[in-house]
């Protein structure tokens, strides 16, 4: 395996890969058929992005299937379990808003990530719109949907600070400005959805570390075991 940590394609590729896998877990379980198809399509977009990014970092299959938990550099946010539908939508809202802003910036740079960013940002605009529309429906919906949406936003809030920690190799990204744009967009959506902006710690000494450093939360190991087990059980197998 090449020195995969040298390129920022690895952390961004890991974000896309892990979120893609999580969304894929909805197949057969989504509340309605249209959502099943929507979540699978979003997962497919992310998988496509992951393949391009991980191929920039090394061999895509080796990187996806043969690394250990601590070698993954994805955000802790994307590895969080699907929870109820509101949790999945909150995770989508936080992440797609971040990814769209980051890719918008990267698309304008000379980075090797620019072609992928320019391509993917158009796909991510649909992901963000999907999450935005659902946040409005659930937040401004029934009493039950409103409670659940707020609960999901609050629960995942503590994983959002990590998104704006500088990433090695992405020195041109204006992280504080990216954060401000993110906060503005999230605030706009939540206000429109008559929801409350969560408040609480998002970074600092309370946390054991970040996904970008290879430190992950409890459920990630189990997810990896499922994602990797076929490839590890049958090395070199092909269709």
């Amino acid at each position: 395996m090449r020195n995969a940590t040298a390129t920022p394609a690895l952390p961004l590729g890991d974000d896309a890969l892990i979120l893609s896998h999580r969304l894929g877990e909805w197949a057969g379980n989504a509340p309605v058929l249209e959502e099943e198809v929507a979540l699978a399509n979003i997962a497919l977009d992310l998988l496509g992005q992951a393949r391009v990014l991980l191929s920039l970092a090394g061999d895509e299959d080796e990187l996806a299937y043969l690394r250990e938990e601590r070698q993954f550099r994805n955000l802790q946010l994307v590895e969080q379990p699907n929870g109820d539908f509101a949790h999945t939508i909150a995770r989508q809202l936080y992440f797609s808003t971040y990814q769209e802003l980051l890719f918008e910036h990267l698309a304008t740079t000379e980075s090797e990530l620019a072609p992928l960013a320019a391509k993917a940002v158009k796909e991510v605009a649909y992901h963000r719109d999907h999450a935005h529309q659902w946040t409005l429906r659930l937040g401004d919906g029934t009493d039950e949907s409103r409670v659940r949406m707020q609960r999901a936003l609050d629960a995942l809030w503590r994983f959002t600070g990590e998104m704006f920690e500088p990433v090695e190799g992405l020195e041109t990204v204006p992280w504080p400005a990216l954060h401000d744009s993110w906060a503005t967009r999230i605030t706009h959506t939540l206000e429109q959805a008559t929801l409350t902006i969560p408040d609480g710690p998002r970074r600092g000494g309370w946390t054991a570390g970040t996904g970008r450093q290879g430190l992950h939360t409890e459920s990630f190991g189990r997810m990896l075991a499922e994602m990797q087990h076929l490839h590890r059980s049958h090395p070199g197998a092909t269709w």
């Binding site: 249209e34 959502e35 198809v37 929507a38 399509n41 649909y126 719109d129 999907h130 529309q133």
Partner: peptide
């Protein structure tokens, strides 16, 4: 009906 349909490139 849905922003995503039979393939990623289509809406329903």
């Amino acid at each position: 009906l849905s922003r995503f349909s039979s393939t990623a490139c289509k809406a329903l």
